[in-house]
Computed example of a mutant assay.
Amino acid sequence: MVKMERVIVLLSLYHFCLTSAAINSLRYVCTTSWGIPDVPDFISVGMLDGQPFSYYDSNIRRIIPRKAWAFKAVDPHYFERATSHCNREQEGIKGNITAAMKKFKQTGGMHTLQNIHGCEWDDETGSTYSYDLYAYDGEDLQAFYMKNMKLQQTVTADSAQSEQRKFFMTEACIPELKNYVNFGKSTLKRKVPPEVTLLQKDPSSPVTCHATGFYPKLITVSWQRDGEDIYEDVELGETLPNGDGEFQIRSSLRVSPEDMKMHNYTCTVQHSSLQQDVVKVLNVEAILTDRENGPPVAVIISVVTAALTVIAVVGLILWKRKSGYSKATTSDNDASSASS
């Protein structure tokens, strides 16, 4: 359905990391697809600091809160109003994708129209950043940015929606973000330590240092040889969602059995939940022990595949990000908002 490299790039887009723990983010993603089997025509997901808190698609035709605090953060009729908004938006955006296909002289095939809009707020400095981005078949269509309520960039602006867009970016998004942070802080501020295991399929395969079940998302996994950090023959994977609000990551080291005997190899995991770093000494005994007590490789692969599938359904496209939205590249933290 979607090529793996497209899913991986979208994964990076979908789960931005923020450089400061003080920065909070609210993001809405809406994706309309054409000609893609077994996928709803319209999907809308709301995310607070990278955690999905609301979901809507054209099959269920209603918004489902994903977090208990989401009920407390809004009035009793909010989700009813937001559902009606999504119902209308769903019909409107179908017309937009049809118009885009006509413009590009396309009569068939698989196509997507996606909008990601939201905002960021630094609760230490008070700085704010808002954006409203559009893409068709992975190509930038329109992009709007505002920093501290000043317009930064506009690409192919259209006046018909400019007032609605301006209202969301300047007046609606930041207050909504602050309200959600207030109610969701018990979830957002929690710290869950990782479980770390060493795994290897056979003596000729790379050794994988796998950390899972941790929150927040920001984590460091590194390899050492005789106490010195090493970077050659090391492959660090993406930080992926587990599906329960926590995360996992794996880093693989290619090392021969001879080198393993001659040198002292360790995997070190650093995370804000830990009072001391987790240091796993690489040897045959440790691998065998973790193989018996830790998650088997097949389960890890299954979880990763499931996570990629979820993200593929939400995004579906390769967004080339020519517009520069990759400003936030390290976080805990996706066409129209369910709440705008």
Rank of each mutant, 00 (worst) to 15 (best):
I249Q: 07
G213N: 02
I287F: 00
Y215Q: 04
V303W: 01
V234T: 05
D259Y: 01
K217I: 06
G294A: 01
V284M: 13
H263I: 07
A298Q: 13
S272A: 12
L288Q: 14
P257M: 02
S205P: 03
V255L: 01
L199P: 00
A312M: 07
C267T: 05
D226Y: 04
N283D: 15
I249H: 04
I287P: 00
K327G: 11
A298D: 13
G294H: 00
R291K: 11
D259K: 07
S256M: 06
R291E: 08
Y231L: 14
T330H: 12
H210Q: 04
L240K: 06
S256W: 01
F247G: 00
L218C: 14
L282M: 10
V314T: 11
D233Y: 07
L316Y: 13
L274A: 05
L240N: 04
Q275R: 13
A306N: 08
N242M: 11
T309I: 11
G315D: 05
R291L: 04
V255S: 02
I311E: 07
E235F: 08
D290H: 06
D233T: 07
F247L: 01
A328P: 09
L199Y: 00
L253R: 00
F214L: 02
V278W: 02
C209N: 04
T309S: 13
V278E: 02
S205N: 07
E246I: 06
V310H: 09
L218D: 15
A328Q: 12
K217D: 07
L198C: 10
